[in-house]
């Protein structure tokens, strides 16, 4: 067998390996990323969704955050403008997490049958974090 043929076989094995790793990786670790409306629609259509771990991207409802520092529990509500539900989380949240000004969060966990989202992870990102809001500028 020619060396180049052997190489093509070796290369095919590597490419197939990478492909298989990606495919099974996506299948086994990929999780839904939904808006609150999508989540509510899905759980209504199929109650089995209450048991599926997923991520929700939404905004924290201003003024809804209740912290219990002693138990490190944080309760808050999230909304996408049309749907809203409460979230409970035990653990540390990033500094960016506040309920000051409509910050965006990504919560990971399960939307329980009790109507509360039990989060295992809370990521916060804040539009004003790196860029502040200033009145409309004019050209120099």
């Amino acid at each position: 067998m020619k060396a180049s043929t052997r190489f093509v076989i070796g290369a095919a094995v590597i490419v197939a390996g990478v492909g298989a790793l990606i495919a099974t990786g996506v299948k086994e670790t990929g999780i839904y990323f939904l808006t609150p409306s999508e989540l509510l629609a899905k759980t209504q259509a199929d109650p089995g969704f209450h048991d599926v771990g997923l991520k929700v991207g939404a905004k924290v409802v201003p003024g809804s955050v209740r912290r219990d520092q002693a138990t490190r529990t944080i309760d808050f509500r999230v909304s996408d403008g049309s749907s809203e539900f409460p979230v409970t989380y035990t653990g540390l949240v990033p500094d960016t997490f506040t309920d000051a000004s409509n910050i965006e969060v990504i919560v990971e966990g399960k939307y329980g049958r009790d109507g509360v989202f039990h989060a295992t992870e809370v990521l916060a990102k804040c539009g004003s974090r790196y860029e502040s809001e200033l009145p409309k500028a004019r050209k120099a």
Binding site: L21, T24, T29, I31, Y32
Partner: peptide, 11 residues
């Protein structure tokens, strides 16, 4: 659908 660190580490 998102994939996170488990995906990247696995691959």
């Amino acid at each position: 659908i998102t994939v996170g660190p488990p995906f990247f580490n696995r691959v």
